[in-house]
Structures are given as C-alpha cells and as structure tokens.
Design a protein around this nucleic acid. Structure first.
Lengths: 126, 126
DNA sequence: GATATCGGTATACTTTTGGATACTACTATG
DNA sequence: CATAGTAGTATCCAAAAGTATACCGATATC
C-alpha cells in the first residue's frame, strides 16, 4: 500500500525533495538578512524617505536605540541602507535606502497589503 | 509640537511621525506571525502541496523536529495551516495550507523573486 | 540653571531560538 | 534479528534576540 502510493503522498506536487529544497534556497537567503522583528519595519520607514536615528525610533513603537543601532549596522553591511553624517551641531545623521534597498519595495508592498487584510481579520475576531 | 522646518527634516516625505507609525501597524501584525527563521520556508514548502512531517523536515536543511513541531503549531493557531491525521499504521499526518494560508502566495512569490536576485548577487561577490 | 535633543554606547538582564541527542511504539524491509 | 522510517516529545544546553535603564558631550531651549 505504501511504496509508490507513499512517494506520491510525500510530494504531491510532483517535485522531489531536492527540488523543493532548491526552491527554498533563495527564500532562505532573503530571510537571512530580512528576518527578525525590526528589519522590515525599519526598511518600510525608510521607503518614505531618508530619516534620522531618533526619528526612526520615534516612529517604531518599542524599538530601543540598542536594537535600532544594531539593525541599521546590519542593513548597511548588506548594502540595503546607507548612513550619512552631516557636520552640524549637534551632529546630524541620516539613513536612507540604497538603490539596492529600494528593490525591496515590491516585497514590502505585498507585506503591507497582506498585513492590512490580516489586521482587519484579527481585529474583527478580537 | 515643533517647528515646521523641523518636521520636514524629520519626515521628508511629508508624512508625520504618527502617520508613519500607522503605516507600520499592518506590517508589524504580519511580522508577528511570519517572522523568524523557519515559518516562511515552511509555508513555501506547503505551497507545493500537502506534506507530511518528515517530508517537510527533509526539505528544509537544518530544521529540527522540535522547531518544526513548534512552528507548525503556531501556523495552526493562526489558521495558516491545518493538520490531518490518518488512521494508518504507522500513523500518517499531513499538513496543508488553509485557504487563508494560501493568500500568502503573492507575498511568498515576491520573497522568492527578490531572494533569487539577492542570491545571485551574494554568490557573485563570494 | 535645569531640561531636552542629538546619535548613539554600556551594562545587565530575560526570553526566544536553536541544537544535540535520545527516546517512544509500531511496522516494514533486508 | 538489525535497521530504518513514522510523528513527534523530553531533556539539557548554548547562542541570539530583545528589554530596561542609565549614560556620554555637545548645544539649544525654557
């Protein structure tokens, strides 16, 4: 009962295990630099335009300076955001999305779209 | 609260802080149930069709049964996936996306698309 | 003179995540 | 009889993520 039958049940979409794993690789790579509680929120904030450190922190409730600092460094390392220091007093530091970071806009757009529907759903249910 | 000048610098895209925060809410809600290392990978795996526990584990390298079990429970709680037990020997358990879970497909699609480009980029750079 | 703002850092802590290994009861295969 | 696969759970531990709070030197504001 379980031999040929069985294999079909294991991967009903006619993809083999290794093919499925291969499909997962790009998603894993993306998640490696995007996952976590704050990164995509910060990126969304920056899609509205360049922002200063405290301004980002003010916009994202619960985000501590320590986490923001850490996340911004990682975004810089991955070339998604850039940091600009201006010689004012007190010093002005602005962050903005790099052109590469801007390629995330469609993804962020989908996330926002799905999130909006999901939010309605969970609010409706309490 | 503060001067006009100041407000412009703080939010260059003419969105106020509270407006930015409001835009962030749906994204935060989405991330609450999707963020983490495994959840979106599991969902992607299930977009190919219903899968059994061990099959999912086999497809996602590094995923331990403990984590998979935990993540699947959370997906169930959030009504993104469903669990079906069949009375075979040994027992057969299948997981599949709920209709609500399937609404994530466009998002997963964008993630896969961006991830594919990103993967090329990081492989090219070593 | 006290307070607030700027862009962070320092320290200490808790929670979550992840990892390794072993184990269950049962069956099918070799 | 030994091994492997089924769907997980149990235990212990390490590492990462996140939280809370305080602090810095500067300047601008009340």
């Amino acid at each position: 009962m379980e031999s040929c039958e069985h294999d079909k049940r294991k991967c009903p979409s006619h993809l083999s295990t290794t093919e499925c794993t291969k499909q997962l690789l790009p998603v894993k790579d993306a998640l490696d630099i995007l996952s976590g509680k704050w990164k995509l929120q910060i990126i969304l904030s920056l899609t509205f335009g360049k922002k200063r450190f405290k301004q980002i922190q003010r916009e994202i409730p619960g985000l501590t300076p320590k986490m923001l600092s850490k996340e911004l460094k990682e975004l810089e390392i991955n070339e998604l955001a850039s940091r600009h220091v201006y010689d004012t007093l007190p010093v002005t530091v602005e962050y903005e999305l790099t052109p590469y970071g801007k390629t995330l806009k469609p993804l962020i757009g989908e996330l926002h779209k799905w999130g909006t529907k999901h939010r309605k759903r969970i609010i409706a249910r309490g």
